[in-house]
Design a protein around this nucleic acid. Structure first.
Lengths: 142, 142
DNA sequence: GGCAAATTCATACTTTTGGCCGATGTTTTT
DNA sequence: AAAAACATCGGCCAAAAGTATGAATTTGCC
């Protein structure tokens, strides 16, 4: 980003210099204001396109497949995640709804919500998709 | 495209009108040519950015590196998943809400919902968490 | 027994998602 | 030029998810 700004700044400086040159140039003096504006327009359209493309550029995706998944119980303890919460986490990561989870674990929907809410606190997230993402990073799940 | 050209034309017309107005205005007459140029510059930078973003359609880029995650474009084609839908899928898998996705892609919430709904059809799922899970199985994402 | 942590449940409310329509414009293909 | 695929947006409604708060039980442990 810093680099972008610097380049942008340099481009501006160059343009201004060019304009000043034109302003005091013999040959160009006769040109109408329209030509002048045309130059500026073209220059800035190009600049704008460049900026727009830079801004829109996509991050390339690189995924490195790690070693086989192995759960470290100590990690759960560190985060203060209880066994039941971990169960809920796993089921969430498998794409089940809270309702389905409650049926699988024979508990009420309320309870699942409580567990997941506590889970979100402990993982410091606010959505189940984030929880899955983070748990994967932390290698809590495979 | 037609619309693009029309808007472009109107913008040009408006700009020219503005310039003419300035040209014959009492108050503005005193302003230097720089102000003039500034207006043109700003206008065309905006235009350029717009154009730049519009035509920077994202190619899904996958860099192969190390133990690899390699996206098979054929898979996407098989499932009929469009580039835009794939983008949404990736962001969903990273835990973003639809609102956040809409902001990242500069589109409305409605559009994100449309894309995700189509995505769910094509992946044969009904929830984003399931979509992530399935996409991972199919190795559409890492 | 008693305490702390864990598990369970409920109610009420807000936000987010998803389903189901339809609509318009754009891009690519044929 | 017509057709098909893609992308964009909107509204409406229902379902799911998340927040907040409080409370009753169970369980493991000293």
């Amino acid at each position: 980003m810093r680099k972008t700004i610097i380049i942008y700044g340099l481009a501006m400086a160059a343009l201004i210099a060019l304009l000043k040159y034109l302003e005091y140039s013999y040959f160009i003096r006769e040109l109408s204001i329209d030509i002048y504006i045309g130059i500026v327009a073209v220059t800035f359209v190009a600049l704008g396109i460049w900026v727009g493309m830079r801004f829109t550029r996509v991050k390339t995706v690189v995924v490195t497949e790690g070693p086989i998944f192995e759960l470290d119980p100590a990690k759960l303890k560190d985060l203060g995640i209880s066994p039941r919460e971990y169960e809920v986490l796993r089921l969430i990561s498998e794409g089940f709804s809270n309702q389905e989870i409650s049926e699988k674990l024979f508990i009420s929907l309320s309870t699942v919500k409580t567990h997941s809410a506590n889970l979100f606190l402990k993982l410091d997230v606010s959505r189940r998709t984030q929880a899955v993402q983070k748990a994967r990073e932390l290698r809590l799940i495979g």
